[in-house]
């Protein structure tokens, strides 16, 4: 029920932002559209804590801030690698353990790895990740596990 309400709220905001016309006709069409989409979404069974992660909302801004800094840092590293061809890069492919319990946290972790250039999730199995990194240092940073720990903290 909470998730349905959250979805309706998000969809209404999406409609109002996009529409830009607030007369009676378009607003009522908006209500009908949001209703229809919610109905289809419920039939598709996509309204749950994975698609509407309400329980993460409180902690996620801090995480995103930290992730933003990481993205900038790894971008700088990649810029150096591209423009200075002398640098020896040593690509690696490895398995990482997955301590997270819920699918949503696994996905946040995997997609955070994808968002930072230089590291890439190739496969997400129930108990491990297969990652490809552009350099040995990138793999070492992931294996150290700070990102994984921060993602796990999101759920608490």
């Amino acid at each position: 029920m909470r998730y349905t309400f959250g979805l309706v709220l998000a969809l209404s905001v999406f409609w109002l932002i996009n529409s830009g016309h607030y007369d009676a006709l378009l607003l009522s069409l908006g209500v009908i559209s949001v209703g229809a989409v919610t109905l289809i979404a419920l039939r598709m069974d996509v309204v749950d804590q994975e698609s509407i992660p309400l329980h993460l909302l409180r902690r996620i801004p801090f995480y995103l801030l930290w992730l933003g800094v990481q993205i900038c840092r790894s971008n700088l590293d990649l810029v150096r690698r591209v423009w200075l061809p002398g640098q020896r890069s040593t690509p690696r492919i490895a398995r990482l353990p997955l301590p997270q319990y819920s699918d949503i946290c696994r996905v946040v972790y995997a997609n955070s790895i994808n968002l930072t250039p230089g590291t890439l999730t190739v496969e997400l199995a129930p108990d491990h990740l297969l990652v490809h990194t552009l350099s040995a240092e990138g793999l070492a940073a992931l294996e150290e596990g700070e990102m994984s720990r921060r993602v796990s903290e999101l759920e608490q």
């Binding site: 993205i71 971008n75 990649l78 810029v79 591209v82 690509p91 492919i93 994808n114 968002l115 930072t116 250039p117 230089g118 590291t119 890439l120 190739v122 490809h132 552009l134």
Partner: peptide
């Protein structure tokens, strides 16, 4: 796979 990383920079 390295080329996917290069695209990652431009994307994000």
């Amino acid at each position: 796979y390295a080329r996917i990383h290069a695209c990652g920079v431009t994307e994000t």
